Computed example of a mutant assay.
Amino acid sequence: MYLAPIVLFVYNRPWHTQQTIEALQKNDFASESELFIFSDAAKDERSFKKVKEVRNYIKSIDGFKKITIIERETNWGLANSIIDGVTKIINEYGKIIVLEDDLVTGPYFLKFMNEALCFYQNEEKVMHITGYSYPVNTEELDDTFFIKPASCWSWATWDRAWKYYKKDTNFCIEKFTKKMIYDFNLNDAYKYFDQIVKNKQGKINTWAIFWYASIYLRNGLSLHPKKSYVQNIGHDGEGIHCGKSSVFNVELIQEPKLNFTTVITEDINARKAHEKYFNSIKISFYKQIMNKLKRILNLS
């Protein structure tokens, strides 16, 4: 099996980066895989020390077939760095596995991702594979399933799919009808499309929502495992776009093999499970806000 290159994007979080690397080193196939690390430059003096610390650390690691480090000379920002890095590597290798510096993988993550890339290589409708699975109710779910949303807390794809990536807010706003937005938002369980609007308004600068939109507009699907191969440790308040929360915590799967579904359509049970989960998160966040207000009022 021809293994996909791993591309890791790092910035100014030394501890998170170390957790990500050490977990990846324990993976099956790690020693046979090429690793590309894109290190963004500091955007201000406050970030300079930690960026340097991250760069010193990544220069000391081993455990992979080959390690290539790309140090940005100026601050690109996460979105621009990922778009540029993924495009360059995928155009050369034809497929790719992508991680950021706050994703801790289980020991069979690389095995799952590479086998999925091989299994669905010629399925045009399959455009995205993720190793992360939200903590939804899995009672009625198969080992793997397809839904429309693309989780980018670890992901993989092919050049045949990535060529359709388009980060264009005007294009998306023009193309999406109200009916499409409702479906895109999982029947309004999660306000995905709001991210496109916020990019248009200049409030955020992200890339992943446009990848989901690009897949959606091609009628593509994203493969998810029933249980997660990845834990996101970035919701501790230090990330660029992540607040502090525990609602996305999962237990990592310890099984080396899952059965890949051959039904290339959106799994209705999986979709409903995700809608229910995201709706429950909204209630959870509302309770957090109300409890915070109560504490403030009691202190005043």
Results as ranks from 00 to 15, higher is better:
N259Q: 12
Y212W: 03
Y229S: 00
K65N: 07
I61N: 04
F112M: 10
S33D: 02
F145P: 08
Y11N: 09
Y134L: 15
I268T: 13
F38W: 14
A79C: 09
F285D: 11
K191G: 01
I204V: 15
V126M: 13
F112W: 08
K200P: 00
T262A: 04
K178N: 14
A4Y: 04
L24S: 05
S33L: 01
N205S: 02
P149R: 09
L186I: 13
I70E: 05
K148W: 13
H274R: 07
T20M: 02
M180N: 01
L258W: 02
D188I: 07
I82L: 12
Q121S: 14
I196N: 02
T177N: 05
D183R: 12
R218S: 03
A156L: 07
C242F: 14
I70T: 11
L217P: 02
K287I: 09
Y212V: 01
L252F: 06
F112P: 08
Q25I: 04
E174W: 08
D159I: 14
S214I: 00
A4F: 04
L297R: 11
K52I: 05
N12T: 03
H241M: 06
S280L: 08
E73M: 08
K203S: 07
R55T: 04
K59A: 11
A189R: 00
I289Y: 10
E238C: 05
T105C: 15
M1K: 11
S214F: 03
L24F: 07
T265G: 02
N75E: 04
L297F: 11
E73T: 14
